[in-house]
């Protein structure tokens, strides 16, 4: 028996079907949780994002019967909620753009140097990227999103997405070089 498509499940949620909501949750909770966790760096905040996303879907799905890409839509909602949490957590005066550009000091260059394998070094350096760079890297490399889908999720023009991804790659390469791993680029 074929599984219901995301769109079918969304339509059923709009019709008040709580089991369809549970099916949607089962299908997308991990992707949304990990995306939110990478942005917020807090398991509790990521879980808050997940629950808020699906409560919103329950309350408003009837208005979204024509969604073309439900998972992309869900990630976009999750992103907005994650940034709202980040904004509340950080300086209230920081706008999203500035907050997104702050690079993380959790994994310092010294910490990255202590990693043994190249893969460990790269993972440590991925954690040092700003939220804006982490999200585009994750959406492309882990969530397998196309350029148009990333643009929809982050609410930016396609050209901006391509440029941001390029800058994220460059910044990552610089962190990796700082950690003593010369890969010959940039």
């Amino acid at each position: 028996m074929a599984a219901a498509s995301d769109l079918e499940l969304f339509q059923r949620v709009g019709a008040g079907d709580a089991l369809a909501l549970k099916a949607l949750y089962a299908r997308h909770r991990v992707a949304i949780y990990r995306f939110a966790l990478r942005l917020t760096r807090s398991e509790a905040s990521a879980e808050d994002v997940v629950s808020e996303v699906f409560v919103d879907v329950w309350r408003n799905a009837a208005a979204f019967e024509g969604l073309s890409q439900p998972q992309t839509f869900l990630l976009g909602v999750a992103r907005n909620k994650a940034y709202s949490l980040l904004r509340r957590r950080r300086d209230e005066e920081l706008d999203d753009e500035k907050a997104a550009e702050i690079e993380d000091g959790a994994d310092t260059p010294e910490a990255a140097l202590q990693k043994r394998t190249k893969g460990e070094i790269i993972r440590a350096c991925l954690n040092r990227l700003s939220a804006a760079h982490r999200e585009v890297i994750d959406l492309v490399y882990y969530q397998d999103k196309s350029i148009d889908e990333v643009a929809e999720i982050v609410g930016a023009p396609v050209g901006t997405v391509k440029t941001r991804m390029f800058h994220a790659r460059k910044r990552l390469a610089e962190f990796i070089a700082d950690a003593g791993e010369d890969r010959g680029w940039p």
Partner: peptide, 17 residues
């Protein structure tokens, strides 16, 4: 290489409770 690292990093993040 970066993609492989990003996938492994994300796969280690677990699931919501």
């Amino acid at each position: 290489q970066d993609r492989e690292a990003a996938i492994l990093l994300n796969e280690d993040l677990g699931s919501p409770g």
